[in-house]
Design a binder for these strands. Structure first.
Length: 443
RNA sequence: GGAGCUGUGGCAGAGCGGUUUAAUGCAUCGGUCUUGAAAACCGACGUGCCAGCAAUGGCACCGUGAGUUCGAAUCUCACCGGCUCCGCCA
């Protein structure tokens, strides 16, 4: 959701964003501006009518009180008093006002509904220093890293071969149980899976992030509030009760303080959670269908930060939240690169966005394992999440950020393939051994 | 799953069709008094939208939505949350 003032005063900025991001359209900006004007005019009319109606209502009340007094003195059905005639006149005027008021209110609420619908589709304006581009092919590589002892490998076995040989993943039975893009982690595979998650969680918690266990089945309001609905409706599993399975715990974490006014002294609020995530992957039919890359259900450690509305701090915290992920990959000695995600690929609400891609030998390239966004007040406006500075009256919309800490099973592709030994066994990364009972090799 | 109760401002709590611009108390903030503090007294004290350069003014909001009425916190209906008891089950 955008600042309505921005839309009224600088609609061209948002139109530009619509084109750069390929979200919404310039026409929708114009439509919003038009319908917003209709709404304001209708409200101005309705307010005046309502005030008039209230006045007449008050007079009706007084007269009725008077008439009651008179009736006590007179027998029923007796002569009509002056007051009674006046009352009839008032009631006729009041009825007329009522109809006019209803019409104005109707017009106002119609316009408001349309304005809201449009607003939910409009893009936030991206940081002008961020790359402009049409899709992921124009993302800009901005940093590359690998541990000297573990450079990117190639020409080695793929994780699909490895896990089948070692019995770490059962794809066939996964599909039997749950359909395409399903899998079952098993034995040491399951241990590795949990070890990776726990390691990442501990790392994030040690850096001052408060851990949460959150619902993964949330209300539609949370999905709209975080910006996933209505645009991404077809990517989510929705229940017969209208609730939705989240694609990331960013949704419940960012929504946690929704509809609240926080105190600035609580900021920045650093949160994290490990949760199961569900994605329909609609439109990705046939893409990455083999292996652990693109699945409907996975687990992820996610980080979320809420803080004051300040661009300098926003940038600093975006770096911080990205550094946390770098640190995890570095500890795992996985080669990675960081991309500045261009406007066409960043999505509706983002101001800045980094993707981190880890090296996956079987793809002979990097594969996206992390995604970190700076959203300024896009989500907090939708969530109605504000804060107040000490001693000040004005409540301000907070800024939000989020980033992946680690996601399983996708990152296992990099680990398994990078750490495979000549004989097909897998060396366990040192930092994970403590989480696997000291196990040094798998297989 | 069955039965009953309940939802009012930061909290407590009145109001149950028209002098409600929602009483009162607590909490909070400012002031008077005081060497200082406490007490006492005085005052302020919600959110959103609209008009206006502004001062300011108007409207809406009593869980949510619809309805009845000239007029709804108050009446009707639906939904949502909370509490209690019973049943079932981790």
């Amino acid at each position: 959701m955008l600042d309505p003032k921005l839309l009224r005063e600088q609609p061209d900025l948002v139109k530009r964003a619509a084109l750069d991001k390929r979200v919404g359209s310039p026409e929708k900006v114009d439509q919003w501006v038009a319908v917003d004007l209709v709404r304001r005019n209708a409200q101005a009319r309705a307010d005046v009518l309502r005030a008039e109606q209230g006045k007449i209502g008050g007079e009706v009340g007084k007269l009725k009180g008077k008439l009651k007094g008179q009736l006590k003195d007179q027998l029923e059905g007796q002569l009509k008093s002056e007051a009674s005639a006046e009352l009839d006149g008032l009631l006729i005027r009041a009825t007329d006002l009522k109809h006019q008021y209803e019409q104005a209110v109707h017009e106002q609420s119609e316009a408001e509904t349309t304005a809201k619908e449009l607003m939910l589709q409009l893009p936030a304006v991206p940081d002008p220093t961020w790359p402009i581009g049409k899709d992921d092919s124009e993302n800009v590589e901005y940093e590359k890293w690998h541990d000297p002892s573990r450079p990117p490998r190639s020409g080695v076995a793929s994780h699909v071969e490895l896990v089948e040989k070692l019995g770490l993943v059962d794809f066939h039975r996964g599909v039997k149980l749950a359909g395409s893009r399903s899998y079952v982690m098993r034995g040491q595979g399951a241990l590795l899976y949990n070890a990776v998650l726990k390691f990442a969680l501990d790392m994030i918690v040690s850096r001052g992030y408060e851990p949460y266990v959150v619902p993964v089945l949330v209300s539609e309001a949370c999905m709209i509030g975080t910006g996933y609905f209505p645009g991404g409706r077809d990517q989510a599993y929705i229940t017969q009760d209208g609730s939705a399975l989240v694609g990331t715990s960013e949704v419940p974490l960012a929504s946690f303080f929704g509809d609240e006014i926080l105190d600035e002294s609580q900021f920045p609020i650093r949160m994290c959670a490990v949760s199961t995530c569900f994605r329909r992957e609609a439109g990705a039919a046939g893409k990455d269908s083999a292996g652990l890359y693109r699945v409907h259900q996975f687990d992820k450690v996610e980080q979320v930060i809420l803080h004051k509305a300040d661009d300098v701090e926003h940038i600093a915290l975006h770096e911080e939240i990205t550094d946390n992920s770098r640190a995890i990959l570095q500890a795992l000695k996985l080669p990675y690169r960081v991309l500045k995600v261009c406007t066409g690929d960043m999505g509706q609400g983002k101001w800045r966005m980094y993707d981190i891609e880890s090296w996956m030998p079987s793809r002979n390239s990097y594969g996206e394992t992390h995604s970190g966004s700076a959203l300024r007040d896009f989500q907090s406006r939708r969530l109605n999440m504000r804060y107040r500075k000490a001693g000040e009256k004005q409540a301000i919309f907070a800024y939000t950020l989020n980033n992946t800490a680690i996601a399983c099973p996708r990152v296992l592709i990099s680990i398994l393939e990078q750490y495979q030994l000549e004989d097909g066994r897998i060396e366990v990364p040192e930092v994970l051994r403590a989480y696997m009972g000291g196990l040094e090799t798998i297989g």
